[in-house]
């Protein structure tokens, strides 16, 4: 099928309103690895027949990294500008594949005048599976060991623990938990602005500590649901020289690839 990526500007010009706005995020737009996640998710949306739109070049960073680093002014400049755009288009519902965008849009934009129903793509995919709109052909992952690394901004920050696991289970995969999981999950090391700076002096990098735990489960696939976790886990696998045997995938990639999309 030919995949389409309508923008809000196009739809509005045609007098149409989408069911949901797909907030792509900076990593999903610019990071070569995470662009593949964006593509996978867009293919799923097309295949399922969801009427969606993106902001395209009208989107800009939610401001999360600035806010966590302490630059409230810059955060609010970004946020207020984004809210202007979102409200201009009358956006009601937003789905995003980035837990940091998800947290900021959902929890922090309301104080600045942006009120939307915001869901993370893991919850969105789970709902599609539950409603029978999205069939997951287990094939490629059937019986394969997958471990899921909880994103802090999805898990502890917003209590989303089960949706990602439900998707892995729907793949008929063998979900193998790390010892530190769900609310006890260990951070990948990139949150709070760490993604954009060198770590402080210490004995070890956080992502190495985490990937050792993931490798300890014997899983060949490490599933993630966050662009920062993706970078950190992938680097961790490289650090351990396991890139030939262990792969890091986002949940949307798992679903799309299981279906041959």
């Amino acid at each position: 099928m030919e995949y389409k990526v309508p923008t809000m500007a196009d739809l509005t010009a045609a007098g149409e309103t989408p069911e949901v706005l797909f907030w792509v995020g900076c990593a999903g737009s610019f990071d070569d690895r995470y662009k593949r996640v964006t593509v996978a998710f867009v293919r799923i949306l097309n295949q399922v027949g969801i009427k969606f739109a993106v902001l395209g070049t009208e989107e800009s960073c939610t401001g999360d990294p600035a806010r966590r680093a302490g630059n409230e002014f810059l955060f609010q400049m970004q946020a207020v500008a984004n809210i202007e755009v979102l409200n201009m288009y009358g956006v009601k519902k937003i789905v995003t594949a980035c837990p940091h965008c998800f947290n900021t849009l959902k929890n922090e934009y309301p104080d600045l005048g942006g009120n939307y129903e915001v869901i993370h793509h893991s919850t969105f995919l789970q709902q599609l599976i539950d409603d029978g709109r999205l069939k997951v052909q287990g094939g490629a992952f059937k019986g394969r060991k997958i471990t899921y690394h909880d994103s802090c901004y999805l898990g502890r920050a917003n209590d989303v623990y089960e949706a990602p696991r439900a998707i892995i289970t729907a793949l008929d995969a063998d979900l193998t938990e790390m010892k530190r999981s769900r609310k006890n999950g260990l951070c990948c090391g990139a949150g709070g602005g760490q993604m954009f700076k060198e770590p402080e002096p210490g004995k070890k990098d956080v992502n190495v500590e985490r990937i050792e735990e993931a490798l300890g489960t014997g899983a060949e696939t490490v599933a993630v649901a966050c662009p920062f976790c993706m970078v950190m886990m992938t680097d961790g696998v490289k650090n351990k020289e396991k890139e030939d045997t262990v792969k890091v995938f986002d949940l949307a990639e798992l679903v799309a690839s299981a279906n041959g999309w």
Binding site: F30, R36, V54, G56, E59, C61, P65, A66
Partner: peptide, 22 residues
């Protein structure tokens, strides 16, 4: 962030280029 509306040094005009890959 101030100049490109992204934490990395990419041109805001390239933000939608990923769509070519779908």
């Amino acid at each position: 962030l101030e100049n490109n509306q992204a934490p990395w040094k990419f041109s805001p005009g390239d933000r939608f280029n990923w769509a070519e890959k779908v």
